[in-house]
Computed example of a mutant assay.
Amino acid sequence: MTQATKVTRTMTGPMPVKILVALKVNGQSRQLMLSPWTTLLDALRDHLDLTGTKKGCDHGQCGACTVLVDGRRINSCLTIAVMKDGANVTTIEGLAKEGVLHPLQQAFIAHDAFQCGYCTPGQICSAAGLIAEGKAKSVPDIRELMSGNICRCGAYPNIVAAIKQVMDAVGDKS
């Protein structure tokens, strides 16, 4: 490498300080000291050992990292954790209550809605958000509103069937 093409990187100024971030994660209050650039995904996985949320593309294109923040589904890989200070975060680990699987978790098992399972936590969290939004009224709606969650194994028919089953059950109760 010639001197003209050599690239050097130097730090100027002090390193950024870590920032205290308070989150309520799966019902538990948590406080974390995080670098300002830490994503919510990395905070969950690396700092809280909640590894159910998956790192897929790290660009917000696959949905493997989907979690619920204040009840809304988001791509945690695109979300800076300090921006969610004070938020209520639900991951796949927080959907089951007192040892009882969430209806979507049960439906995914009943409909064999996964093969490798890598996308499943994001699919289920996204489906929980979808149902809470109340916008999906049909199978085509489910397909469209879940299009941000990729399944490389192609288990889409079973995923849609599982979501529809729970959506119908929720609709029957209202």
Score class of each variant (00 low, 15 high):
T2P: 06
T2V: 08
T2I: 08
Q3V: 12
A4R: 13
R9D: 12
R9V: 15
M11C: 08
T12F: 12
V17G: 15
V17M: 14
K18E: 15
K18C: 14
L20Q: 14
V25W: 00
N26M: 13
N26K: 13
N26L: 10
S29F: 10
Q31H: 14
W37C: 12
W37E: 15
T39V: 10
T39A: 12
L44V: 05
R45Q: 09
L48I: 05
G52M: 01
G52C: 03
T53H: 03
T53Q: 03
G56C: 04
C57I: 02
H59P: 00
H59A: 04
G60L: 00
Q61K: 01
C62T: 02
C65T: 03
R72G: 00
R73M: 00
L78H: 01
I80L: 10
A81F: 01
A81T: 00
A81H: 02
V82D: 01
V82E: 01
M83L: 06
M83C: 04
G86Q: 03
N88K: 04
N88H: 10
V89F: 01
E98W: 04
V100I: 11
H102S: 05
F108S: 04
H111P: 06
H111D: 09
H111I: 06
D112M: 06
A113D: 06
C116V: 07
C119M: 09
C119W: 06
I124E: 03
E133L: 13
G134T: 14
S138W: 08
S138Q: 08
P140Y: 09
D141T: 10
L145Q: 15
G148M: 09
G148H: 14
G148Y: 11
I150P: 08
C153E: 05
V160R: 07
A161K: 08
V166L: 09
M167V: 05
V170H: 12
G171N: 13
D172R: 13
